[in-house]
Amino acid sequence: MSMAAPSESSNAGLGLQQRRPHALGERFISILLMTAAALSVVTTFAIVLSLAGDTVAFFREVSVIEYLTGTLWTPLFSNPRFGIWPLITATFMTSAIAMLVAVPFGLAIAVYLSEFASLRARSLIKPLLEVLAGIPTVVYGYFALTAVTPFLRGFIPEIKSFNSLSAGLVMGVMIIPIVASLTEDAFNAVPRGLREGAYGLGAMRHEVALRVVFPAALSGVAAALLLALSRAVGETMIVALAAGQNPTFTLDPLVPVSTMTAYIVQVSLGDTPYGSIGYKTIFAVGATLFIITFAINFGSTLIVRRFRERYD
């Protein structure tokens, strides 16, 4: 973009008319930038279309009723059954265990960071959390499988090599930084005036944190927890490695199961030809996963919109 010297374009009058070449260039650039931004919308459409295509093909062969109500998932057997529930229960069991770990710990860290920590403690803890969040999930999965499960066996001898418990626990640790940073944002959004109001009455830090800041930030916290839950539901490598690949309809955290994501991985690793029913199942399961996580995320957005505290 060269700057046109005023003399070049000011042959007529005072030269206040639009500088033509620039105007064209500016227009071109703004259209180019807009196209780039619109690509993200295209991506969403591509996701929906690519999931929908093979999902529709899947339901031409399999009854929707069986898919939504069945409790047997054996699509690759010679006598295939297509009940999604074993995958769903497994997904929610591992996610629930993860949330049981991540919610109290993540909230505690967030409360500490926003209400107690000195500047120095903050500058130490924040990067530490970033490091935790930056470790690839496959590494967490390795750890759950090769270290946590053998460790748990010391206390629970009947635990199987693949189980929801250790996958869920490790996934919980993985999610702690997410819960902590999202809820800390919610705490920080609570105006200073409320805190001062409570301190002015002689409240101690923990009373301000738990009885003023936390209730005031409740909707933000709820939205943050939903986002974390959606992360847990969509998490793949930890459960694929540590929870197993056996679609069992159970709520026993000590036996192998298969989550929706683990099932997709399992089929993808095998040599499943395009167009086969096995190939279509991963799109049907993927579509189900997408709808569930989308619903959770949407719920989070709704909470933020509906219950946003107005302080002004």
Partner: peptide, 16 residues
């Protein structure tokens, strides 16, 4: 100290 010496702020700040 703050219990005995209370405070009212510039902007009204009732708890929600």
């Amino acid at each position: 100290v703050r219990r005995r010496i209370g405070m009212v702020f510039q902007k009204p700040n009732p708890f929600p």
